[in-house]
Simulated assay, not measured.
Amino acid sequence: MQIGHITLKNQLISAPMAGVSDKPFRELCIQFGAALAVSEMLSSNPEVWRTPKSKHRLIHDDFGIRSVQIAGACPNEMAIAAQVNRSLGAEIIDINMGCPAKKVNKKLAGSALLQYPRLVENILSSVVKAVDIPVTLKIRTGWDPLNKNCVEIAKIAENAGIQAIAVHGRTKTCLFNGNAEYDSIKRVKEAVSIPVIANGDINSAQKAKEVLAFTGADAIMIGRAAQGKPWLFQEILHYLETGEQLAPKTLSDIKPIVFSHIKKIHQFYGEEKGFRIARKHVAWYLADYSPDDLFRRSFNTLDSAQAQLEALEVFFENH
């Protein structure tokens, strides 16, 4: 698959997820076969760029293709944000028009923009003109089930010079409820000639193949299903290439993965913040292996990185 002049090695992309798609997580997804791991959303507001959170979100990856997602509602600010990230090493700029979060939408960013096609056009054109690297777009199918305008937005994007578009198969008001609908993604694929990326509820190798076949999409984007299961990319890739399913990973299989990831989180964020960030990842990793939440609850009371590593060692020894 091509995104402008950039060639992806396969059809699998790791979705940008706020609070999840940090450098340690992106690196893990690339390690397990994702062709591209998009950074978590970065505000286009320059006033927040110097905050600790934004500094961690600025991309400094030494692996894979560096794709940075930006969000905002001002065409000029978005253009400047794209230029800043380009100067920091971004190879792709991704524009967020799919986030359904209230705090994002109340600023007219994220999926709220789908209600204003003219503003969408202005933002996309401004960003495309501002940088000399490919610009991509992530959207939902529309604002609500009665106002699905993803085909219109996709055509605007193509005309503005967007190089690929990812479509989550839900409207803004649907949030993450119900099932993703792929009919709209199929219609987008039929309406434009730029690459289309299908997103939403792709949580298994079989589902990935079915979605690709039904929508005709050029690639798929995996989000929540990879939380605590980054090897999902490996499973999907193997199934698409061979038609065979890999055996499920055992606890002993995931132990080195968990330890490596948690140590990188501690290192990336530092002692004070790292152990807090690590908690949710450990809960995701162990959800299928330890259904009761006794360990999770005790793990969440630990207040140091070393205590977390020691507790994990005991857990894996006893299971």
Rank of each mutant, 00 (worst) to 15 (best):
I156S: 12
T7G: 15
Q306V: 00
C150N: 13
L232P: 02
M78A: 10
T242L: 13
S204R: 06
Y239M: 09
G243Q: 12
P230G: 03
Q308Y: 05
V135A: 10
G110C: 09
G142P: 04
A130D: 13
V196C: 06
G270D: 02
E244Q: 15
D303H: 13
N179C: 14
F315S: 07
N318V: 10
F259A: 00
A311F: 01
V282C: 08
T136K: 02
Y289D: 04
P248F: 02
L12Q: 05
V211H: 02
Y289M: 05
D292Q: 14
Q206D: 14
G243P: 09
I162F: 06
D253K: 02
F295P: 09
F315T: 10
A130K: 04
A112F: 13
D62T: 01
S184R: 10
I95H: 08
K172L: 14
L58E: 04
S184C: 14
C99H: 03
V128H: 09
N122R: 15
L251T: 08
A305T: 00
Y285F: 13
N96L: 11
A154G: 13
K107L: 15
A205E: 11
P75C: 14
P195L: 11
R50M: 15
M221T: 03
N199A: 13
A287L: 09
D293N: 15
S204Y: 03
E313V: 06
H56K: 07
F275V: 00
V48R: 12
A191Y: 04
G110E: 08
L312V: 01
K102H: 11
P75F: 06
C174S: 15
R170D: 06
G19K: 06
A247S: 11
A305M: 00
Q163G: 07
A307P: 00
A71T: 09
L137V: 07
